[in-house]
């Protein structure tokens, strides 16, 4: 599913990023394909999302979040 459709505060696995620049920028911050992350919140009026992993918290716009495919991981 797309990151924008993913539920909040669930363990997510990044499965695909459909934009090279976006993927490089996410990799730099430690959010590559096959990495785990959490969707935390979204600013009002379809504003940016906040996303975190164990080490880092980032914000990204919804159009970029739309380019990221994730799957839900079982609790663990």
């Amino acid at each position: 599913m797309k990151l924008t459709q993913a539920p909040y505060s669930k363990r997510l696995l990044v499965t695909q990023i459909s934009d090279a620049t976006l993927e490089i920028k996410l990799l730099e911050l430690g959010f590559g394909i096959n990495s785990e992350c959490n969707l935390l919140r979204q600013a009002p009026f379809n504003g940016p999302y906040t996303l975190n992993n164990e080490k880092t918290q980032i914000i990204l716009r919804s159009e970029d979040a739309n380019r990221i495919e994730v799957s839900i991981l079982p609790r663990g």
Binding site: T21, L22, K25, L26, L29, P48, T50, T56, Q57, I58, I59, L60, R61, D64
Partner: peptide, 17 residues
């Protein structure tokens, strides 16, 4: 300015909090 100026490339906002 936004209405008058030519559109540029895609804008991206990725920031560490």
């Amino acid at each position: 300015a936004h209405k008058v100026m030519k559109r540029g490339g895609r804008s991206m906002l990725i920031m560490e909090l």
